[in-house]
């Protein structure tokens, strides 16, 4: 609630990191089961049927995602499709078992690690050939210079498997949970006042300019 945007930005980095570290829970998350983080409307219903179905189906879709990822070389599919399917599996679990428990179960370290690690792995596969005078992403170097069996094929598939697939699955998951957590900022005051409630604009009146 700052009058001056600059003042707001001045404190920006500090406050947001403190918030994130000391008090990671959003307003919604303090009431884990009653009103789910799906927000106004509370769409989460604990259903044994859905939970059992997901418990049965999830391993299959997960495996299918991995299959797509690993078989992009010879048939349709690849890291993007496979990663998306793996990510969606997690979202399915979140829908069945509730977003909050799933969020607790999946640590931020895992998600960030997969996303950043994927980017780094992709870049590394691309950059290594430069060391021996090759070009960026010159997969042939892996068989010709580094002497790996089928190196150029494995480098190409490696890009999909250790680069793209982890990034896509992690970001699909990350996007879902950050959006589900919503915005905990100025407007949060009215948001916590109950599901479906309409905001009182007067609260923020005269804030800008």
């Amino acid at each position: 609630m700052t009058e001056d945007p600059t003042e707001g930005t001045e404190a920006n980095g500090e406050t947001s990191s403190r918030e994130a570290n000391d008090e990671p829970s959003s307003t919604d998350s303090q009431l884990p089961t009653e009103t789910d983080a799906m927000g106004p409307g509370g769409t989460y219903v604990e259903s044994q049927v859905i939970m059992t179905t997901v418990r049965v189906v999830a391993p299959f879709t997960f495996t299918y995602g991995l299959f797509l990822t690993f078989h992009g070389g010879g048939s349709p599919g690849g890291g993007f499709q496979g990663g998306a399917v793996v990510g969606t599996t997690i979202l399915m679990i979140a829908f069945a078992f509730g977003i909050e428990p799933t969020r607790d179960w999946l640590s931020n370290r895992t998600v960030v690690g997969l996303a950043s690690g994927g980017v780094l792995a992709f870049a590394l596969i691309g950059l290594l050939p430069l060391l021996v005078g090759g070009r960026f992403l010159e997969h042939a170097v892996y068989s010709d210079e580094f002497g790996l069996y089928h190196g150029k094929k494995y480098a190409l598939e490696g890009v999909e498997i250790v680069g793209i697939a982890p990034i896509v699955s992690a970001i699909v998951i990350g996007l879902f949970f950050t959006i589900a957590a919503g915005f905990v900022g100025q407007g949060a005051a009215w948001q916590s006042s109950g599901p479906g409630s309409y905001p009182e604009h007067d609260l923020d009146g005269g804030d800008e300019e």
């Binding site: 996007l175 950050t178 959006i179 919503g182 915005f183 900022g185 100025q186 407007g187 949060a188 009215w190 948001q191 309409y198 905001p199 604009h201 923020d204």
Partner: peptide, 13 residues
């Protein structure tokens, strides 16, 4: 875009 929408809704309702 959707993240921005969630935030705009939180700010303006």
């Amino acid at each position: 875009a959707l993240a921005l929408l969630v935030r705009i809704y939180a700010e303006y309702g």
